[in-house]
Computed example of a mutant assay.
Amino acid sequence: MKTKLIVLFIFISLFNGYSQKRFEAKKLGFSIDVPKDWIAVENDEILKNLNSYDFTQEQLDELLKSYNSSVNLASFTKYDSKKVSGIIPTIKIRTNKNETNNSKDFLKFVSNSTESAKKSLSNFKFIDSPVIIKISNLDVIKFSVQFTLNNGGKEYEIVSNSCYIPKNGYYISLNFIEEFNKEDNKLFFEELIKSIVLTN
């Protein structure tokens, strides 16, 4: 009986630790599980515009392409930055411009874009090179990198796990950033990737 109670307690603890909520951008055909106890910073204005108006697909594509730089849809941090210093595990969901027409060209674009990252980030290297994987039977790009970030005279080794989802004229980027060897949330990130649903 005691053994059963211990097993039940462990199961409940794990379930509570990984309880999820869902982030959804309906007009983009994108949704993903996010930890319910993480701190959410959603771009309410962008999401409201996307979800409130009956855009045609062409209008939506043009709207997202019209932004000169990336549009942050939402960010989720594991800890409160006012209470915890240093690099906090963070999930960022954005849209960016995409001028490619197929998966192979998009893969090449992602690989080439890292060249500029190498110039601006110290000790930049791939942990996992960009590859095409399937999510909801659609091609997306997944990769992970490591680099050194200087902040306030202190160096931090950063790991960034990424998933890029190409759309017509733009792509959705999902980035999970954390400090190397401080916490290891890679398996957790893999579970988030598995939770992605793409509907168009």
Rank of each mutant, 00 (worst) to 15 (best):
E191V: 02
L174C: 05
F143E: 08
E190W: 01
I87L: 09
Y170P: 01
Q20Y: 10
S103Q: 09
I133N: 10
E191A: 11
S162K: 10
K118Q: 13
S70E: 12
L198E: 06
I158D: 04
S120N: 14
G169L: 01
V140Q: 01
R22S: 10
Y156V: 05
L50D: 00
N181H: 07
I135E: 03
L14F: 15
K119D: 11
F126Y: 15
L149Y: 14
S70F: 08
L64N: 00
L138W: 00
A74C: 05
G153D: 06
K36I: 13
S75W: 00
D37M: 13
G153S: 05
E191P: 00
E178A: 05
K167M: 15
F11E: 08
L64Y: 00
Q20C: 07
T3R: 08
A40E: 14
L187P: 00
C163G: 02
G152Y: 05
N43S: 09
F124H: 08
F109G: 00
E24F: 05
Y53D: 07
R94T: 14
F124I: 03
V197L: 11
L149C: 02
N96W: 08
G29T: 03
N161F: 01
E99F: 14
L149E: 12
K194F: 02
S173I: 01
E115H: 07
R94I: 08
I135H: 02
S85W: 03
N51G: 12
R94A: 13
E183Q: 13
N102D: 14
Q59E: 15
I12M: 13
L198Q: 10
I46E: 03
F143K: 13
Q20E: 14
D105P: 07
K125A: 11
L174R: 02
N185P: 07
A25L: 02
N112R: 10
G29C: 04
E179Q: 15
K182Q: 11
K134T: 04
D105S: 12
S195M: 03
N43W: 00
L60I: 03
I10A: 14
S129E: 15
